[in-house]
Amino acid sequence: MSDAYQPDGMDPSVPKLEVRDVTVRFAGLVALDAVGFTVEPGSVHAVIGPNGAGKSTCFNVLSGVYRATSGSVRFGDAELTALPPHRIAALGMARTFQNIALSPRLSVRDNLMLGRHRLTRAGFVSAGLRLPSARREAARHTERVEEIAAFVGLTPQLAMPVGLLPYGVQKRVELARALCMEPRLLMLDEPVAGMNGGERREMAELIIAVRESLGISILLVEHDMGMVMRLADAVTVLDFGRRIADGPPEAVQNDPEVIRAYLGATSETEEATP
């Protein structure tokens, strides 16, 4: 398996992500009930649904933070459900967090350098003794981090502690940190939550730019329907832990089940066929 990407989405090194019959139970509460979908290589796939539908749980299963009770998640040849988070990261899956999960006292540069963790090797001894190999490695990866920061528009803030930056900028640092992992699949958990109109537009443009220049798959959890319809190639709709619709945005938008879930009609949790 190669780590190298081409700028177009046709590259075979970006594998398919297949989620099949994933069920997650928390002591009696079924957070996800036999959910399945496939993220095609190089596509933008959105997972939407009302609050508590299981979107974040789904992300946490994919990134190894939660264990699935049953079901399978395959990324290329790898089965993810049995792997710890750092092994999943090593496969080239990167994610951002809905609630910002950065180190507030570290500079933007250091936060982004953490994204290079899986691509670098320096350990306690080589970093402590400042061995030439560790210094060369740090210099090389700092260069790439600065490139990514420029792309995301964070160059002026590189030296600033993350905790001092406005919320919208911190969200961009989250995205940049995930990009620093040189991911093959980028998972964005509500990238525009809590942002104002201008910031939303900028973030949407950024996501489009990522997709166009890197050609990687993007899995998106989002509440902002306008943004989902504009960005996504495919949409999966969850409601109460179940998949109630799956398909291209136009089809999903007009699905009666989806309209019912979003508008809160008096439907009980009946089985929906996609």
């Binding site: 990134s63 190894g64 933070v65 710890p84 988070p85 750092h86 999943i88 990261a89 090593a90 990167a94 994610r95 967090f97 999960a101 950065l102 180190s103 507030p104 006292r105 570290l106 250091d110 936060n111 350098m113 953490l114 994204g115 290079r116 963790h117 899986r118 670098t120 090797r121 320096a122 350990g123 306690f124 080589s126 970093a127 402590g128 003794l129 400042r130 560790a134 490695e137 740090a138 940190r177 992992m181």
Partner: peptide
Amino acid sequence: GVLRGRPGRAMNTIRDHEIAAGVMGV
């Protein structure tokens, strides 16, 4: 050297956000 290098960043992230550290490959 440890604190300013790769291990230090990983250690700080474990302190600040353990789950994020794992997801970032630590």
